[in-house]
């Protein structure tokens, strides 16, 4: 768990910040739901692009939804890092054996969810392509790809935050 450089020292210092509102399992799960909502905005932008692009309405809606998802999502991402104490994000040499085990147990679940997500996207795109449309807007494909990448990238963190037990209460000075 020894930091190897100043950057890692700073990362560990940031992760020691206390966020009492979100330290409990309930609070952490609220953050996960909010982060999933941000990802949902990106998926909504992809659907809007699919049906409305190319048009000004589609462009404006996509920029607003994706911008909102990025701004709010970045805040939530930082909070999730802190409440999980970096379990899903830090290099392995900065974690102890419990944290490594938590990370390893979250990954198979995230992997299964990714497979389900890919299957759902495959079916949804297949169904949408059956509708009478001359061509699929390239904007929709790009936004869909970004939404997919962001979701797959976020899943290990979201699963880890969702599953973590309540941390032990702070002790009084010995």
């Amino acid at each position: 768990m020894k930091p190897r450089n100043r950057r890692e020292e700073r990362m560990l210092a940031v992760l020691e910040r206390e966020t009492p509102r979100y330290q409990t399992r309930k609070g952490r799960r609220r953050l996960v739901v909010a982060a999933a909502g941000c990802l949902g905005l990106m998926w909504a932008a992809a659907v809007v692009c699919w049906y409305l692009a190319p048009s000004t309405a589609a462009m404006v809606t996509t920029f607003v939804l994706c911008g909102l998802a990025l701004v709010v999502g970045a805040q939530l991402w930082g909070m999730l890092h802190i409440v999980t104490r970096g379990t899903a994000s830090l290099p392995e040499h900065l974690l102890d054996e419990r944290q490594v085990r938590e990370r390893l147990s979250a990954h198979p679940i995230a992997h299964r969810l990714t497979l389900l997500l890919l299957l759902a996207v495959f079916l949804a795109v297949g169904l949408a392509l059956q509708e009478e449309r001359p061509e699929v807007p390239s904007a929709a494909a790009v936004v869909l790809l970004f939404a997919l990448m962001a979701t797959v990238w976020s899943l290990p963190m979201l699963v880890t935050a969702w599953r973590m037990a309540d941390p032990p209460p702070e002790e009084e000075a010995v």
């Binding site: 768990m1 020894k2 104490r85 974690l95 102890d96 054996e97 419990r98 944290q99 037990a165 941390p167 032990p168 209460p169 002790e171």
Partner: peptide
């Protein structure tokens, strides 16, 4: 050389340590 919360989880019996730990 573990996270302080790990000590708490150990004390509460919510985490069983490796033989090494």
């Amino acid at each position: 050389d573990v996270h302080y919360q790990t000590v708490g989880y150990l004390e509460r019996g919510e985490y069983s340590p490796s033989l090494h730990l």
